[in-house]
Amino acid sequence: MFICLAFHGEAIITKDVIGMEVLTEAVVRSILKKDKVKEWLVNPDTIITPSAREYLNEQKIKLVYTKDEQGLLGISKKNNEKNEINDTEEKKFIPKYIVKDTGGFFEKKPEEMTQLYGNELVLKNHPSILFRGKVDSLQSKILEIQVMADKNKCEKLVCELQEVLQYVRNILKAEVIKEATEEICLFGLLEEDIREMSHNPKKHIGVAHILPDYKMGEILIGLNTIRSGAREVELSSIPLNRKDITKSLNRLSSAVYVMMCRYLSGYYN
């Protein structure tokens, strides 16, 4: 039995960044679920990934390069009637998941992969996924300290932490929908205000620069954890090449440091 690259029942031709046909292992596996073949017909210009070639060898399937009168499909006349697919059917096929880096596809999402944008799949160690995980952890820590502040009846601190939480969520949203982040404005302070206060806390808040100590109490130490967490997220954003996000996170850590100084000064009492 012969089989073609452009089989449309379970798979489609994938293309690389320059538009050439690419035969991936995912395509081969998908088609072989329903059809047992001895030969695989491909166009001589087709790019065959190493994993696809290895899998075909394992299955003892011979690659046959051809450009006959049927074109790319390479279907012999005796099988033409069985495998013929018209343009209308081709247009109807839409893969459920597309692998971002290889152009392959899946009908069922593998456990080691996750969705990046829409139906694009990437491995779970992709820089964007690692970044989103760090943001998730930071949000968790903010909420934890909010609960602590609420128990200690620090209502002003609870409100300001809510502003910080929303700011972090807006950063995540900007990354997911590919939009620029907004200029920082937290608890009535603009970027220059935050910078000046974080660099000169003695002048503006009345306390010297802080070297955290356990005796300062769980809320201040919790705020310090938020500050250091913002730094970690900032570092994880660098591979994304999103300077606006990196800058926003840098300013966020400074804003949380201002909160630490304010807490030590009794501002939230």
Rank of each mutant, 00 (worst) to 15 (best):
V27W: 05
S237W: 03
N224T: 05
I210A: 06
A208C: 11
I145F: 03
K82R: 14
L223P: 01
E25K: 15
D213R: 13
Q59S: 06
S228N: 03
M197W: 12
D35Q: 08
E218H: 10
E155G: 03
R195A: 05
L165E: 09
V122W: 02
C261T: 12
L121D: 04
P239Q: 08
V207P: 02
C159H: 08
I98P: 00
E21S: 12
E179W: 01
I177N: 03
Y167L: 10
K202R: 15
W40Q: 07
A26I: 09
S137M: 14
G104H: 04
K151R: 13
I210C: 07
K153A: 05
V135I: 15
I129F: 00
L121C: 03
G206V: 15
G133M: 13
E192T: 07
Q166K: 12
P239E: 09
V233Y: 01
S228G: 00
I18H: 14
K215Y: 02
R242G: 00
Q166P: 00
E39Q: 12
L161Q: 04
D101V: 10
I129C: 01
K34F: 00
N86K: 13
E21Q: 11
C4W: 07
K100M: 06
N269R: 14
C185A: 06
K34S: 06
C261S: 10
I61V: 14
K153T: 06
T24E: 14
D35M: 08
L189C: 01
P44Q: 08
L130M: 08
D193C: 08
E163L: 07
V64A: 04
P110T: 05
K173C: 02
C154S: 12
A26S: 11
K62S: 02
L123V: 03
S198H: 10
P50I: 11
E54Y: 01
R195K: 14
A6P: 01
Q146V: 01
I31Y: 05
Q166F: 02
L235Y: 02
G206I: 15
P95C: 05
E179A: 01
I94Y: 05
I129G: 00
T181K: 09
I47R: 15
D101Q: 15
M1T: 10
K109Y: 00
A52P: 07
C4I: 07
S237Q: 06
Y65K: 13
E54V: 00
Q166L: 06
L223Q: 04
G71D: 10
K141S: 02
D68H: 02
D150L: 14
E89V: 09
R53Q: 10
D101G: 07
I85L: 12
I221M: 14
L5M: 13
R251I: 02
R29P: 00
A208R: 14
E58A: 07
I3L: 15
Y97V: 08
S228D: 03
